[in-house]
Design a protein around this nucleic acid. Structure first.
Length: 509
RNA sequence: CGCGGGGUGGAGCAGUCUGGCAGCUCGUGUGGCUCAUAACCACAAGGUCGGCGGUUCAAAUCCGUCCCCCGCAACCA
């Protein structure tokens, strides 16, 4: 299908409440989705939660809670965050959805039948204290840090996914950008990883985890969470596991109703307007994803196991995996111990929805790690939003009192700006807009319209100056739509009614 | 020699691919303005672009080497 845009966020692991990192990825995805929707592309934004696995099982067991009830609560938290951030998603997938589970089992059976999953032995370092396998990187001085004992090398019967046979094919696709990994540095990292060694087959079964999807061909095991999690990108647009993947056209897909509607939460905007037309049906016309946003922590798996599963299934790979950096605080990872955690709720409370969205996206190059502190965010909020954009609107609206103005609807025909978004330079796109804000503030200073207004003979000149500012602001509103849709609306309304009902971005402190 | 990234005025960053006067925002100082959210505008101070060496008419940028910081080193996600 042409003229479509399918974007995914990772599904977030439901072992704890959402934090700023989740907000960052999801806001970026939402902006890209809104932008493409604005370009009249049929757009689908998928997000959701990953709800199985040992971590959650242990956590709920220890707390004496029911796992399902626990993840239900966490899923609600994530949905509520989306609402607070004004995320206009088309589907919120949960891996405990019945339909998702069924499809995962179908896929596993298929891979098993094809001999791509086989029974073998998994050899790993097993800590008796933890009752689980450990990574080398988890160990401190070769010992389990929790129990301070050396783990034993244990062989366990397990179901393994064949990796190596499609490895060179994968490497080629990454090299040629058929399966693009961006930014470039992450492509290099993955290629160097893939070219250095043969991939080991990955164990896709778990014996000691009951909180998971049972293997269809051996009920003594559950499915390794990653396998289950990856398939969300397919089930999230309504795939039911049948092959070959018949993509069809959206129009036809709309007739079916595969996506579980109970999980569709209406975001603020879709409350007002008709809900996304793509919420129903097998929307496989959207396949493959045009962009899959991920954090750098999950790159390895997303660039190996996930595409390998697809290659095995004969399904087209995503067009691009885009890796963004982490949000650091005071140059370090946020941690409770360091006390440098910036809470997303705190941000929302302080800066509001659009303020938070702006601060997240303008904090640094999208794709690099960014460093944030509350102090600097307050500074930036005051400088860019209150003193910059907010004040500019106040000035212009007040000056509009003396005259009547043309409110032409502006459409974006600006290659510079569009290119930045299409190349995922979201921070640069915002910076482009703020250059206009700064120029306009300067322009007012130079043109001195308040003096022109007093002089009858300079009426025409005055009219020109204000009209230019009105035009610029309508354009700015258009630019801001995907980033801060509520603000964009307020600006438009203010220009239309020639008055500002509220201070846009009140200065803080 | 495991892999990848990074080191640019006081702070945060862009620029490096494709060499061409070192740039942006914040902060600081001085002045201006009054349409505006005590906002805005101008000017100024402040940098051996991590060190050393090389290529070049010319290096933050290319090459070599060294130092420092961060992430990763696959089945927790």
């Amino acid at each position: 299908m042409k003229n479509k845009f399918y974007i995914t966020t990772p599904i977030y692991y439901a072992n704890a409440k959402p934090h700023i990192g989740h907000a960052y990825t999801t806001v970026a995805a939402d902006i890209l989705a809104r932008w493409n929707r604005q370009q009249r592309k049929k757009t689908f934004l998928l997000t959701g939660t990953d709800e199985y696995g040992l971590k959650i099982q242990k956590k709920t067991e220890e707390a004496g809670k029911d796992s399902q009830q626990f993840v239900d609560e966490i899923a609600e938290e994530f949905k509520s965050l989306c609402e607070k951030l004004n995320i206009n998603y088309d589907n919120f997938i949960r891996t405990t959805d019945k339909k998702h589970k069924e499809t995962v089992q179908k896929v596993l059976q298929l891979l098993y039948d094809k001999g791509l999953i086989y029974k073998g032995t998994y050899e790993g370092l097993y800590c008796v204290g933890c009752e689980q396998f450990k990574n080398k990187s988890d160990l401190v001085d070769g010992k389990c840090p929790e129990h301070n004992i050396k783990p034993e090398i244990i062989k366990e019967e397990s179901y393994l996914l064949k990796m190596e046979e499609v490895q060179s094919q994968l490497t080629e696709k990454i090299k040629s950008d058929e399966f693009k990994i961006g930014p470039e540095k992450y492509k290099r990292e993955i290629l160097s990883f893939l070219e250095r060694q043969k991939l080991q087959d990955v164990s896709i079964s778990r014996k000691n985890v009951s909180w998971g999807i049972p293997l269809p061909f051996d009920k003594n095991y559950t499915t390794y969470v990653w396998v289950d999690a990856f398939l969300n990108y397919l089930t999230g647009v309504g795939w039911n596991g049948s092959l070959p993947l018949e993509k069809g056209e959206l129009e036809r897909d709309l007739k079916n109703n595969v996506v579980d509607e109970s999980n569709i939460l209406q975001s603020k905007e879709s409350f007002k307007s008709p809900r996304s037309p793509f919420l129903k049906g097998e929307n496989l016309g959207f396949w493959p994803p045009d962009i899959q946003l991920i954090g750098k922590d999950i790159l390895r798996m997303h660039a190996t196991m996930w595409p390998i599963m697809l290659l095995h299934l004969g399904i087209e790979l995503p067009r691009e995996l885009f890796v963004h950096g982490h949000i650091l605080s005071e140059g370090k990872k946020m941690s409770k111990t360091l006390g440098n955690v910036i809470g997303i709720d705190e941000m929302l409370e302080k800066f509001g929805t659009d303020g938070t969205r702006y601060l997240l996206m303008s904090a640094g190059s999208f794709g690099e790690d960014i460093d944030m502190t509350m102090e600097r965010m307050v500074e930036k909020y005051n400088a860019d939003l209150a003193n910059g954009l907010g004040n500019l609107i106040s000035r212009v609206v007040k000056l509009m009192e003396h005259g009547t103005w043309n409110m032409k609807h502006k459409t974006i025909n600006n290659e510079q700006f569009s290119k930045k978004i299409d190349e995922l330079e979201l921070d640069k796109a915002l910076n482009y807009v703020w250059n206009i804000v700064r120029e306009d503030n300067k322009y007012i200073e130079d043109a001195k319209p308040w003096e022109l207004a007093k002089d009858e003979s300079k009426k025409e000149e005055f009219r020109k100056v204000i009209q230019k500012l009105v035009d610029d602001l309508s354009l700015i509103a258009e630019f801001l739509k995907p980033f801060m849709s509520e603000t964009a609306e307020k600006i438009k309304k203010a220009l239309k009614t020639e008055r500002l009902n509220e201070v846009l971005f009140k200065r803080i402190k």
